[in-house]
């Protein structure tokens, strides 16, 4: 088997917000073609990890590295990270009244295309592109004319996230609780979209509470996070065990030694 290329490597990452430590030494390697699931309780640091990777300005990194395709991301602005191909699917996509969804999407796509050395799309070309991708998430065209996420239901917001993922063609997609607040039909649509967009050259990271999403999207690796660390890594079986036995039974091996 060919040596798969490393896409993202997180080295001993410590980070927090307003002086509070949340990540306490995260280590993670993600190669192309892989699907990873990060599971953990509320407050275990899963969402923080995703925001730190995307460069949320409220979080400070105290030490460690985030290497994306041989480059350290930690000093880059959020837009540069996105342009390089890092995508964060938000747990709670924010509503931005007044900014039309279609305008927002076009500006974002053209920023990414510039990095990919593709030509800028005009309004008409872009509309064609969007319409193709709308099918992936089974969205109606009129969503495009509304404000970004403005008045969208929970499911619509999540589908809008996947639409953005489809349009931006990221190399790595980190999807934070993409399954939360979705009914089973919406979950299937979203999961099908994610599966369709995944490929051998890309990587996907699913951050989730429950294993139900993992029935739809099969992860290669499952990590359990606790107190800002990855305490156990396994395969799909680990998620099933976790569901059965609960988080209580998973201790940080280091804690046990104490």
């Amino acid at each position: 088997m060919n040596q798969k290329k490393l896409i993202l490597e997180i080295k001993d990452l410590y980070a927090g917000i307003e002086g509070k430590d949340i990540l306490n030494g995260v280590n993670l390697k993600i190669h192309e073609g892989e699907i990873h699931a990060i599971m953990g309780r509320n407050g275990s640091g899963k969402s923080t990890l995703s925001k730190v990777i995307a460069g949320h300005p409220e979080y400070t990194i105290s030490s460690g590295e985030i290497i994306f395709k041989d480059k350290d991301l930690t000093q880059l602005e959020p837009e540069d990270r996105s342009n390089q191909g890092v995508f964060l699917g938000f747990q709670y996509p924010i509503e931005i009244a007044g900014v039309k969804n279609i305008d927002f999407l076009r500006v974002a796509v053209n920023a990414r295309r510039k990095i990919l050395l593709k030509n800028e799309l005009d309004t008409f070309e872009f509309e064609d592109l969007v319409e193709e991708n709308l099918r992936i998430v089974k969205m109606e065209k009129d969503f495009l004319e509304r404000g970004v996420n403005e008045g969208f239901s929970g499911g619509e917001k999540k589908r809008n996230e996947i639409l953005q993922m489809a349009l931006l063609e990221p190399i790595i997609s980190i999807l934070d609780e993409t399954d939360s607040g979705l009914d089973i039909d919406a979950l299937r649509i979203v999961a099908a979209g994610i599966n369709k967009l995944h490929s051998d050259q890309k990587a996907t990271v699913l951050i989730t509470h429950y294993q139900r999403l993992l029935n739809e999207i099969k992860p290669d690796f499952v990590h359990i996070m606790k107190d800002g660390e990855i305490i156990k890594t396994g395969n799909k079986q680990l998620a099933i065990e976790l569901e059965r036995e609960g988080y209580e039974n998973f201790q940080n091996p280091l804690d046990k030694n104490k």
């Binding site: 995307a54 460069g55 949320h56 300005p57 602005e77 959020p78 837009e79 990270r81 996105s82 342009n83 964060l88 938000f90 996509p93 924010i94 931005i96 007044g98 900014v99 305008d103 927002f104 500006v107 974002a108 920023a111 990414r112 970004v148 953005q164 931006l168």
Partner: peptide, 17 residues
Amino acid sequence: FYLRSRGISNEEAISMM
């Protein structure tokens, strides 16, 4: 942050908003 995380520059994001 949401706009910037989609690759839109700070300047453009403010102007859009």
